[in-house]
């Protein structure tokens, strides 16, 4: 045995192992969105589920992202066929009510689904406090770089995406993000 050479060779393995160990702490499924920090992509989508007063919007109304400037927007992509969406439904519906008197707008965006089924799902879940719009052809979903549902985007008063949450959103996370956005100094354009 040539021990000197053996030890040198053995030492070569160490950095490789450290590299893999670091890799184990990563999640390959978690891909950061490039959107936070950028202007929220615009959209003009038709309301299919009105929501409930005081947050209701008439069915058939067109919601434009540009018209929501000055308000904090919680954009939640969902579908009736999405099992995980059931987990966050109540949290979002109650969250929208809790912030009803603040400059916060909740908006559901239906992803790859039919409005009829979306409405049936809302009825089955016991109603939704805020309105939902339909996204035919998933054009807006692609504009937002959607991987799947549910995903929730937070847009600040200046119309910039500040945060993206993948998967069902926990109540504490929702509250935390909204409170920090509300505490931030208002943009000059606030009406």
């Amino acid at each position: 045995m040539n021990w000197r050479r053996a030890l040198i060779a053995g030492a070569v393995a160490i950095p490789v192992l450290f590299f893999f160990a670091w890799g184990l702490t990563r999640d390959p499924g978690e891909i950061p969105s490039p959107l936070p920090g950028r202007a929220a992509p615009d959209f003009a989508l038709e309301v299919f589920a009105p929501g409930e007063p005081p947050l209701a919007r008439a069915v058939g109304d067109t919601v434009r992202a540009s018209a929501l400037k000055g308000r904090i927007v919680v954009l939640n992509f969902w579908a009736s066929w999405c099992l995980a969406c059931r987990d966050e439904h109540t949290i979002l519906s109650q969250g929208a009510r809790a912030y009803a008197d603040q400059p916060v707008t909740f908006l559901g965006v239906l992803y790859n689904d039919e409005p009829r089924k979306g409405n049936a799902w809302i009825a089955e879940m016991g109603g939704q406090s805020y309105p939902s719009v339909n996204d035919p052809g998933a054009r807006t979903a692609i504009e937002y770089g959607l991987y799947g549902v549910p995903e929730t985007f937070f847009v600040n008063a200046e119309g910039r995406v500040v945060r993206k949450h993948t998967g069902p959103i926990p109540a504490a996370v929702l509250k935390g993000i909204l409170d920090s956005l509300l505490a931030a100094p208002r943009a000059a354009t606030t009406p």
Partner: peptide, 25 residues
């Protein structure tokens, strides 16, 4: 389970490199 595999790769890699390099002469 990944950590177990990593430990095993470590053992195999180091043992193999040491044995091969040690016998290379």
């Amino acid at each position: 389970i990944g950590w177990y595999f990593l430990a095993f790769i470590g053992v195999v890699l180091v043992a193999a490199l040491v044995l091969v390099a040690g016998n290379s002469d």
